[in-house]
Design a protein around this nucleic acid. Structure first.
Lengths: 133, 133
DNA sequence: ATTACTGCAAATACTTTGCATACCG
DNA sequence: CGGTATGCAAAGTATTTGCAGTAAT
């Protein structure tokens, strides 16, 4: 818990209780949750939490580089406690979102003269579980 | 124009005038337009066009595989006359969206046991033009 | 006449904003 | 006290839906 506070401080985010809890949730639940999911899980323990605060906090965390937004379907932004480079796979049938290990070797810094700061690789299809049925 | 009609017919889309024009627009304007952009450009020549029709048509074209949706920012879906495999680069400064040639060699059909039907690679950063200023 | 296409308006969903209150140092 | 954080409600934006009018075969 104190580590989390440290991390926030190191990234210029003053560690209010709500912010701590939201960031902690993302670290503990690597399920790429949507805003709604985060909110409805946390409200159980933090009854005063508002969705606005979730939005505000996620914006700060994203701006400071602590989490990343995953945009695959345009009607649901999902959040990921930013870590190392990896891709995502979304099952079109059950909607699950899986992490995909990708080889980080030889990732380009530039393409066609453009400077790259973010790389997003995602795949869609039918997941293991759905296709085995 | 007749080729376009043929393509629609081959994909089970009855080629109404509006649908022809929308698909033609996408083929002629490889600028990854948003719905709004498509609508506001076409309304100049087709005064009776409604945005609903644009949405409907784009949905059909997407379902039939003639165009693909590009989801990079969650508040703007862009449309691309589907062609060969390529990636996209979005400039965070000017907002331009560039096509990126990617090596289609060795694209996986399966990852971690999941069957892949779509692959999306996109990058963000500062484009050539913006960084040279 | 029957069927499909279109367009308006209302409905829905997600996110942002304005502002007053509550909290913290 | 002074400044920041929070929460509610309203506003904004993008998209979908219901339905009636229109066109086409």
């Amino acid at each position: 818990m104190n580590e989390i506070k440290e991390t926030l401080l190191q990234h210029d985010i003053s560690p209010s209780y709500h912010r701590l809890k939201i960031y902690e949730y993302l670290l503990d639940n690597r399920i790429h949750p949507t805003v709604d999911r985060i909110y409805s899980d946390l409200i159980k323990n933090i009854p005063t939490l508002s969705k606005t605060t979730v939005y505000n906090t996620l914006r700060s965390l994203t701006e400071k580089g602590l989490v990343s937004q995953i945009t695959i379907e345009n009607n649901e932004v999902r959040y990921d406690a930013a870590v190392d480079f990896h891709g995502h796979f979304k099952c079109m049938k059950c909607g699950a979102l899986y992490d995909i290990n990708l080889d980080p070797e030889g990732l380009p810094d530039k393409i066609d003269g453009h400077s790259i700061t973010e790389r997003h690789y995602y795949f869609k299809g039918i997941c293991k579980n759905c296709s085995s049925r």
